[in-house]
Every structure is written in C-alpha cells, then in structure tokens.
Amino acid sequence: MVNTVLTISVVLILLSVLLSLYRFIKGPNTADRVIAFDVMTIASIGLIALISYFANRLIYLDVAVVYGLLSFIGVIVVAKFLEKSL
C-alpha cells in the first residue's frame, strides 16, 4: 500500500523534472534556464529522499542535505553573473 503510493510519487516527481527540462531547453533567456535548474534540483532532493526510502538506508539522506545546500550557491552564482557583479 505505502509502496504503491510512494511509487506514484516518484513517477510524479520524474514527470515534473521532465517538464522543467522542457523549460530548460526552450527558455528564452538564461534566467528562465536557471529557474528550471532550480526546480530540477529541488525535485531531485525529494527524489533522493524517496530513493533512500526504497533502499531503506538513512545515510543516503546526507547526499540530499549537501545537494540542497549547493544548488543554492549555484543559483546565486548565475544570478550575480547576470547582474555583472560577480
């Protein structure tokens, strides 16, 4: 029961990653692409958490913590680059 529901969640998250990939390919300018990148990373955090549920290992969550932190820095780098104030 729980497994089935969580499988559906994984599929939904994968779909949302694919949708943001579409925006990444199409996005008229760089800022749109960065937004797509941001959504992809946030969705991946959820994906890693669900993978660690399916593998039943707590330690995989460490990856998600580092992931969440570094996507933040990546977005800020690109934003400051766009503003020409890097």
Binding site: F24, T30, R33, V34, F37, M40, T41, S44, L47, I48, I51, S52, A55, R57, I59, Y60, D62, V63, Y67, S71, G74, V78, F81
Partner: peptide, 25 residues
C-alpha cells in the same frame, strides 16, 4: 556559453542522483 555551463552542471547533478541509485553515496 552561459547555457552550456549550466547544462554541464545539470549533467553532473543528475549523475549524482544516478550514483545514489547505484549504491555509491
């Protein structure tokens, strides 16, 4: 070039999820 750099970042980002899947945290 900006898009290319971000796309290379996306590749390694999802490579990292793939490593979790391959049991290599």
């Amino acid at each position: 070039l900006k898009t290319a750099i971000i796309a290379a970042g996306v590749t390694s980002l999802f490579a990292s999820v793939l490593y979790v899947l391959l049991a290599a945290p």
